[in-house]
Simulated assay, not measured.
Amino acid sequence: MKRSPSASTLARARIDAHRQQSRVHAGALIISVFGDAVAPRGGRLWVGSLIRLLQPLGIDERLVRTAVSRLAKQAWLRIEPHGRRADYLLTEAGQRRFEEASRTIYAARPRAWDGRWRLLLLVRELDAKAREPLRRALAWQGFGQLGADCFVHPGADLDEALQALATEGLAEAPAQLLPLLAVDARHGLGRSDADLVRRAWNLDELAQAYAQFDAGYGPIARALQADGAAEPIAPEDAFLLRTLLIHDWRRLLLRDPELPDVLLPALWPGRAARELTRDLYRRLLEPSERHLDALLQLADGQALPAPHAASGQRFGGPSVAAQPASTV
């Protein structure tokens, strides 16, 4: 009987697949690393450590330095020199963004819906060319679209959504959009909630994205869960896989409006994807933290502090023993 690939082999294949991508979005990956690994240790890191962390993912020194400079201009990070070296720190605004995102990324379950729809109405005339970047940016925040001039979401913070548009280079967008709350879609918009969902979002496309996520990470999680898994994942590979997992999960959640269960299909794959992410993240946490302990430094040569206790409660706590294999 042919032996199934080990978790270590599957993890390395996933890491290698990322390295071979033709386009590398270094800035977005650095945001994931800071939010997941650096923020729990004080939110400050010597850029040399960041370069060493990301090099195995095919991101070289030039790409890292270019990306962190761009993130500093976008008010995510600030620079604090120490002689010939420098630390990069989360700004207060960057810290707030991470804290807000973390409540969704690491939640054990989706947030409960309060029954209100968040609307952004386009109140200025825009031609199709000017409208498209706005539509794309809001779609990446999970907003659906009703007609040409109305964007809808079940739970977004509208102030945060407008601020994110400005941060992404759409500085005029807040003045072009009117934020509103609709308490009851049947009265406020003239359609049932279920019909609104069908009109505003392509759930088939989102379900396909979740299926691709499972194809990339499900076999690794199941190999780790299998009895007699012979090869544990090495600490460096555990960190790299954890980074890619959270990066891809975060990108999925940006697209997912996290609709209430009553408005989703019975076997909605987003539920299983959250269980998969929770289980795999917990299993990778301890070896990846050992890698971070050994590698992370400040510009003055000191090691970073241990992660704060709250980070151990991500996805609802540390235990993984009782979690079944997840499939989408």
Rank of each mutant, 00 (worst) to 15 (best):
A166R: 11
E172C: 03
L189S: 09
L203M: 12
D159V: 06
L170R: 10
R191I: 15
A200L: 04
A164K: 07
H187I: 13
P174E: 02
L203G: 12
R198K: 15
G169Q: 05
L170A: 09
A200Q: 04
A182T: 04
R191F: 09
R186I: 00
D204K: 15
L196I: 09
L181S: 15
E160V: 09
G147P: 14
P154G: 07
E160L: 06
S192W: 00
G155A: 11
L196G: 14
L180Y: 01
C150Y: 01
A175Y: 02
L196H: 10
A185N: 04
G190M: 06
R186P: 01
H187L: 11
E205P: 07
A164E: 05
A185E: 14
E172H: 12
A182G: 12
P174I: 02
D195M: 11
Q163V: 04
P174W: 03
L158Y: 01
G169I: 04
V152W: 06
A200N: 05
L165H: 03
D149G: 06
W201N: 06
R186T: 05
P174L: 01
R186A: 11
A166D: 12
A166M: 04
P154W: 00
A194D: 03
A194L: 09
A185L: 03
A156N: 11
G190Q: 06
C150G: 04
A175R: 15
E172F: 13
A156E: 14
D204G: 15
V152N: 04
D195L: 13
D184Y: 07
G169K: 01
R198I: 12
A185P: 08
E205L: 08
L158T: 04
D157I: 00
L180A: 13
L170Q: 07
Q176I: 01
A175V: 00
L196Q: 13
D193E: 14
G188N: 13
D184T: 12
T167S: 12
R199T: 09
H187V: 13
L203K: 11
A194S: 10
D204Y: 09
A194E: 06
A200Y: 03
G147V: 09
C150P: 07
G190K: 05
A173S: 07
L170T: 02
P174R: 03
